[in-house]
C-alpha cells in the first residue's frame, strides 16, 4: 500500500471507528440497562456526553504538572487511533499491516493504559494516585496470559504454515486458526479464546476489573481530576480501544467472512464481510464488557491479580500445552 493511500484512508477510518466505538458504548449501556429491567439511555447517549463534556470548563488542578496533565489525554486518543492502522478491520487487511504485527500491537496497547497511569500520577489527587497504582497492577497482571496466547498462536503458525510470518495478522486471516489444529488443539484454542475474552475485559477496564476507576470507592480513580475536554478525550480513547481490542480477538479467533457462503463477489462481498465484522465486534464486546458488567460485581485489586496470575495463566498454559501436544502429534 502506498503512502498516499494510507494517508487518504487513515483519517476517514479513524473517524469511522471513533463513531463506531461511541455507538457500541451506547449499545453496551442500553443493553446493560435492559438486562437490569431498566429502559436505559438512548444508543446515541455517549455522543451527547462527549458534546456536553466539550462545552464544560476544563480544570487543571493547582498542584498538577500542567503540561503532562493536558498532554496525556491527547496521547491516549492518538495512540489508540494509531493502533487502528495495525489491526484488521471490516474484514480488510490492516492499513500498515506490513509495518507491524501482533507483537507491536501488544506493545502499543500498553500506551493508552500508560497515559492513564501518568495522568493519574501527575494530577496531584490521592484518589488518582491510588487509581494509577491499581491500573499498573492490573496491566502487569493481564500481560502474562496475553503473552502466552500470542506465543501459542505463533507456534501454531510456524508449524502449520511454515514460511509465513508467524506473528502477522495476515497469516491468521488467510488460514483460520481452527483449521490448523485437530480436536485436541481445538480444545486448547477454545480455552485460549476464553482467556482472551477475560484479558480483553481487563484491558477495556470493564466492570469486574475496573478497580482502577472505581467510582464508589476512590471517586473515579485515575480520572478523578479530569474534567471537560480532557475527560472527553479519555472517553473517546476508551471507545476506540474497545474497537481495537474487539478486532484483535476477531482477527485471531474469528477471521471468517460470510461472502463465501452467500456466493457474493466484488463490492457486495466486501460490504457483506464488513457488516458481518460489525456483528462479530458486537458479540465480542457483549461477551467481554456488557455481560460481565451486569453479571459480576467489581473485584478487589488482589482478586484481580489472583484471577489473572493464577486462574487465567493456568488456563492459558493448559491451552498452550494442548496445542503443543497437538502440534507434536501432527509432526509425527
Amino acid at each position: 500500500m502506498t503512502l498516499t493511500t494510507v494517508l487518504l484512508m487513515s483519517v476517514p477510518l479513524a473517524l469511522l471507528c471513533l463513531l463506531l466505538g461511541l455507538i457500541y458504548k451506547g449499545i453496551d449501556r442500553r443493553l446493560g440497562a435492559r438486562m437490569q429491567a431498566r429502559t436505559g439511555p438512548p444508543v446515541m447517549q455517549p455522543l451527547r456526553d462527549i458534546r456536553k463534556l466539550m462545552l464544560k470548563e476544563n480544570i487543571v488542578p493547582k498542584h498538577a504538572v500542567p503540561w503532562l496533565f493536558s498532554l496525556m489525554p491527547v496521547v491516549a486518543l492518538g495512540s489508540t487511533l494509531a493502533l487502528l492502522m495495525y489491526v484488521p478491520l471490516f474484514g480488510q487487511a490492516p492499513l500498515l499491516g506490513s509495518y507491524g504485527d501482533m507483537v507491536s500491537v501488544l506493545y502499543m496497547l500498553l500506551i493508552p493504559s500508560l497515559t492513564l497511569v501518568i495522568g493519574g500520577f501527575v494530577s496531584s489527587s490521592p484518589y488518582a494516585v491510588v487509581g494509577a497504582q491499581r491500573e499498573m497492577v492490573t496491566m502487569i497482571s493481564y500481560e502474562f496470559p496475553l503473552a502466552i496466547t500470542i506465543v501459542a498462536f505463533a507456534w501454531l503458525a510456524s508449524v502449520a504454515a511454515p514460511g509465513s510470518a508467524a506473528f502477522a495478522f495476515s497469516t491468521f486471516s488467510a488460514v483460520p486458526v481452527w483449521s490448523m489444529t485437530s480436536i485436541l488443539g481445538s480444545c486448547g484454542l477454545i480455552i485460549l479464546f476464553a482467556v482472551m475474552i477475560v484479558v480483553t475485559s481487563g484491558e477495556m477496564g470493564a466492570v469486574p476489573f475496573d478497580a482502577a476507576e472505581a467510582e464508589t470507592e476512590i471517586a473515579g480513580g485515575l480520572l478523578s481530576e479530569y474534567s471537560g475536554r480532557n475527560l472527553a478525550l479519555f472517553y473517546m480513547a476508551s471507545a476506540v480501544k474497545m474497537v481495537v481490542l474487539g478486532s484483535v480477538i476477531i482477527a485471531l479467533f474469528l477471521p471468517f467472512g460470510i461472502s463465501g457462503y452467500a456466493g457474493l463477489e466484488g463490492m457486495a462481498a466486501q460490504a457483506a464481510d464488513a457488516g458481518f465484522f460489525l456483528l462479530k465486534l458486537f458479540a465480542v464486546i457483549f461477551a467481554a464488557s456488557t455481560f460481565p458488567r451486569v453479571a459480576v460485581p467489581r473485584l478487589r485489586i488482589t482478586q484481580i491479580v489472583k484471577m489473572y496470575w493464577v486462574y487465567a495463566t493456568a488456563a492459558a498454559i493448559i491451552g498452550l500445552t494442548l496445542i503443543g501436544i497437538d502440534v507434536l502429534v501432527e509432526a509425527i
Binding site: 438512548p42 484518589y127 476512590i218
Partner: peptide
C-alpha cells in the same frame, strides 16, 4: 439513566 442522567464519583 434513560434521560442520560448518571451518578459520578468525582
Amino acid at each position: 439513566e434513560r434521560f442520560g442522567i448518571k451518578l459520578v464519583g468525582s
